[in-house]
């Protein structure tokens, strides 16, 4: 394979990994947004908390935990963090306006980022796993196992979530809440409980994202802020509340960033993705894929 083509494929692969990261983070955020109509500006900070949980578990001095055991621990931990946030700060304001939602969750974000700064300092931390070091090279393209795992897991989670919301009773009632919360009271669906369950699921997916993807990047206190915004951009581009659209948009952002960063300017890769987002906002305010009702 000519070297140019090889480089191109490497950029595409990087873009897909990045897209997988964005997609997993977006998935949790889009879920809570469509079910309870709340934009959680602290969502990316859940990813940060998951990453630091991973860091702590990897650097425990008393015991060495295997990675396969750490994965479920982080998933459960982040689901737990999400439920705590929901119970403490989000539930009391759930019936208020989007302004209250935005300001409150931004407040949560400030708390979480600065708490992390106090506990872990601002130094970037690494969380290498056995998989990051193991490189495979199919067709001459070098890629770490970790990236392959990220891609596979993103697809599995995406398909699994589809199955969940289409086929299970809880999934169907989550869609019901997203479409007509007033009617839920009439048939006896407990909207408050569904909100908590949604946050738990969103948190679990974000925990999974953190435990798989943090090893590929550095961990630092405000890593979540940019991720929140990327996920929000994907959600808006996908057509607010249209979860599938948001996932496609997340992959689009990942690939555009990787290509632009690789060929044009690494420094401006975030400018290009946010620029794309704002362009979509102006040209197609309802998203690339149009708005659909609920999940």
């Amino acid at each position: 394979m000519p070297i140019e083509l090889e480089i191109f494929f490497e950029h595409i692969l990087n873009g897909l990994t990045l897209g997988g990261l964005y997609a997993l983070v977006t998935l949790g955020l889009a879920l809570t947004f469509s079910v309870i109509d709340l934009v959680n500006f602290a969502h990316g900070d859940l990813f940060m908390m998951g990453s630091y949980t991973l860091f702590v578990l990897l650097t425990l001095e008393s015991i060495v935990l295997p990675y396969w055991l750490i994965i479920p621990i982080v998933i459960v931990a982040v689901a737990f963090y999400a439920v705590v946030l929901e119970r403490v700060a989000i539930h009391p304001i759930i019936n208020k306006s989007w302004r209250t939602h935005a300001v409150t969750t931004l407040g949560l974000s400030i708390i979480l980022q600065n708490a992390a700064l106090i506990i872990f300092t601002g130094d970037p931390r690494q969380t290498p796993t056995a998989l990051t070091a193991s490189i495979v090279s199919p067709f001459g393209i070098r890629i770490s196992m970790q990236r392959i795992v990220v891609l596979v897991v993103t697809i599995v989670v995406f398909v699994g979530l589809q199955w969940f919301v289409r086929r299970t009773k809880t999934g169907k009632s989550m869609r019901a809440v997203s479409q007509n919360p007033a009617m839920c009271e009439v048939v006896g669906i407990n909207v408050r409980r569904m909100a908590t369950i949604t946050f738990a699921i969103g948190g679990a997916i974000t925990g999974l994202a953190a435990v798989l993807i943090a090893p590929l990047f550095s961990v630092f206190p405000n890593m979540g802020a940019l991720l929140t915004l990327k996920a929000l951009a994907a959600i808006v581009m996908g057509g607010m509340g249209h979860v599938n659209g948001a996932i496609y948009a997340a992959f689009l952002l990942g690939i555009v960033e990787a290509l632009f960063g690789g060929y044009v300017s690494f420094a401006y890769k975030d400018v290009i993705s946010f620029g794309l987002f704002i362009l979509v906002l102006f040209v197609r305010p309802r998203g690339i894929f149009g708005r659909r009702v609920g999940l």
């Binding site: 869609r175 019901a176 479409q179 009439v186 006896g188």
Partner: peptide, 22 residues
């Protein structure tokens, strides 16, 4: 209830299932 009181993005079958939620 008065007015449209179903789940518009759920199928007819799923709507009836939601009716039996409890």
């Amino acid at each position: 209830p008065e007015g449209r009181s179903n789940f518009p993005g759920l199928t007819v079958h799923e709507n009836l299932e939601m009716g039996a939620y409890i």
